[in-house]
């Protein structure tokens, strides 16, 4: 397997720029095996993303992907964004967590139109509402569906089954 080069200088630059600009809105920072990950305040997501896109020294011009997360033990939902700067060929991951009781976060469709369907998919499966989204409705599931199936409270197997021991056959 090829060496996965981590540009530590650029990671540091990104972390410093973000801290200088949004110091109080960053709640965590982690250097993961593959890329830098910043945990940010959900209130400030759109603002931070716009900054990451437009700042001369960062230029994260490409929203690679966006997906929902569910942390049932903390009663939280999350959104994970992957950004890519073509100019500096650098990727970062941005994470946010929001409470299950109020799953609202601002949309990124104004920054990257590509976020439109990704956010619809996240809404469809996790029930995260993206404020300001032009057309937030289900995309892969039927409109009549009431639940958000990717949440962890929906196990894959029929819960009434007793012949399978979960400790032996997966979560």
């Amino acid at each position: 397997m090829a060496e996965y080069l981590i540009d530590t200088g650029r990671n540091q630059l990104v972390a410093d720029r973000l801290t200088a600009q949004f110091g109080n809105k960053l709640t965590g920072q982690e250097l993961m095996a593959d890329m830098l990950c910043m945990v940010v305040d959900p209130e400030a997501v759109a603002e931070i993303m716009r900054f990451l896109r437009d700042d001369e020294s960062l230029q994260y011009n490409f929203l690679t992907t966006l997906c929902g997360m569910h942390y049932p033990e903390k009663e939280q939902l999350g959104v994970v964004y992957h950004l890519h700067s073509f100019k500096y060929n650098h990727r970062i991951r941005i994470k946010t967590v929001i409470p299950e009781s109020k799953p609202v976060i601002s949309t990124l469709t104004g920054i990257w139109p590509a976020a439109n369907w990704m956010e619809r998919e996240t809404y469809d499966f996790f029930g995260i509402r993206f404020e300001g989204h032009p057309n937030l409705k289900r995309i892969l599931n039927v409109d009549e569906m009431e639940d958000f199936p990717m949440r962890k409270e929906f196990p894959l197997e029929d819960q009434t089954r007793e012949d399978k021991d979960d400790s032996m056959f997966g979560r």
Partner: peptide, 28 residues
């Protein structure tokens, strides 16, 4: 770009696996 975002909590299965499907994104 086909991307796989894999989150592992050390269990036997992924805690979360997200596919970045290129078609899905550009078809919009």
């Amino acid at each position: 770009e086909l991307g796989f975002y894999l989150v592992s909590d050390g269990g036997r299965t992924p805690a979360r696996l997200h596919f970045r499907r290129p078609c899905f994104i550009y078809y919009q």
